[in-house]
Nucleic acid binder design. Structure first.
Lengths: 260, 260
DNA sequence: AACGCTGATCTCATAATCCGAGAACGCAGA
DNA sequence: TCTGCGTTCTCGGATTATGAGATCAGCGTT
């Protein structure tokens, strides 16, 4: 049998969810009902959470998330979490395929922010965590751009320019727009020596459960070591890893038990 | 007997504390030891937290705070928490003393940011939540300035100027420095019609358990209704309320049980 | 290739912990 | 004073958590 779950902890988080939901302050009985708990149990749990500083009881019918919760997340951010969650997987990709692997997100300026990487021996890509590079010319960037809203994408394409970094760089807004549509269609991007000569790269999206692209995962290799024929297999592998990352990040097991 | 605490929840938070502590990733056995838990128990709790998304197991010896924790605190901030925790107390102050009551913090520009207020009927003070006013001329501001480090205080005093808002406003850096020293000494500030004519105000610090001043609490009244003789009694009341707020915010009951 | 290490996972009987209905309480407004 | 709402408490019964140790899995070493 799988490891049994501590039910009290799940209930405590159900209550915390209620408090974090839009309505700022809720009463104990209403939270109890929403979480399928008896009033007595909800009270005990809230009293415990309050003693721990995770919840503050500010008055009748008023509970709120406490300072302790803020302290616990003070050193965390989506980026650092993504980095630590993906590092082991990046290492495995490098080990099994010989590629340099990257994870990146798109910032508000439409630049690609590199979150983490695992380099192979022949790595030539000058990425360090936190560095920002142009989006239009890399596999990661194109995957991330492909999921922009139509408006945002049009703005990006109109803003240009897209200077050529190699002979194969996509440099016209029209061609880039077609490329992004193709990427949305097949759910992965290929950078065929568009950023560096002789460097091929495959990138796939990392998805939020709601379908949004929240990050991208890529594997790069010298074009002498990654033939076009091998690309599809690499895509399959990366897609699996991307799904694993998504699962790891968003796993959420707390179906509120409906009381009789 | 007082409400019994759900022990599992306390243990879960002890583990979360380990993860939030400086060292980013720790192994299960080391966390178990640090929290005084058996390996089996720690494992069960971590598995539960992982299923809830509160913790991510990124690899052997690597656990980290999960996305769920970020989601729970997304809508919270110290300021909103302070506001909801103090509102009921501000109301009570207004009810029992007839004063207008305020809570405020100092921002990075040394301006007083008003967090919450409860106005009496004759209120003339134009404060709304989030508004920022000068610090040198109010009770709240002076309490907050008094706790600046010597360097920061000197910088503030040197930066000036301090334009007079009434005939009693403290306008020279020397006098303000002396006033702040006196406030540190007696642990409360009085604004004797320094900001508005005929408006007296008493302010006390709200303290972090480590002694730092993190916010201030004030009560203001028309000088015809608050004689200088009544000030000391008001201070006593406010001090009690400030201590109650501090307790409410920082309560922390999770002594890790030392295993035999 | 077998070894030893570290960390993670599982098993199971024991007993400690948690549960829930309902009653009582405190407070505020009608 | 009465009513309503939200909170707090009580207590026996049983679900639930506990912990030592065996097992498993991965990795770097001898």
């Amino acid at each position: 049998m799988a490891t049994p779950e501590i039910k009290s902890v799940g209930k405590a988080f159900a209550l915390l969810d209620c408090l974090a939901a839009e309505d700022d302050c809720v009463s104990l009985p209403s939270m109890a009902k929403r979480c399928g708990l008896s009033v007595a149990t909800a009270h005990r749990l809230l009293a415990t959470l309050e003693a721990l500083g995770a919840v503050v009881h500010t008055g009748p019918g008023q509970y709120a998330i406490g300072l302790r919760m803020l302290d616990l997340t003070r050193r965390s951010s989506f980026e650092t979490l993504l980095a630590s969650a993906t590092m082991p997987i990046l290492s495995r990709i490098t080990r099994t395929t010989g590629s340099t692997a990257h994870v990146a997100v798109l910032d508000s300026e439409r630049m690609v922010t590199y979150i983490a990487r695992s380099a192979n021996r022949a790595n030539r890509i000058p990425t360090t965590p936190g560095i920002k590079l142009e989006a239009y010319c890399s596999g990661l960037g194109k995957v991330l751009l492909a999921d922009l809203s139509t408006d945002d994408r049009d703005t990006y394409l109109a803003d240009g320019p897209f200077p050529p970094l190699t002979a194969r760089t996509i440099i016209t807004p029209e061609a880039l727009d077609r490329e992004l549509a193709a990427i949305r269609d097949r759910r992965f991007a290929v950078d065929d020596c568009e950023m560096f000569d002789n460097l091929r790269c495959v990138a796939v999206p990392i998805l939020h459960p709601d379908g949004r692209v929240i990050a991208a995962l890529s594997a790069s290799q010298d074009s002498t070591e990654l033939s076009r024929a091998q690309i599809q297999e690499l895509v399959t592998q990366l897609t699996g890893h991307a799904a694993a990352i998504s699962t790891k990040l968003f796993r959420r097991g707390s179906a509120p038990r409906a009381a009789h």
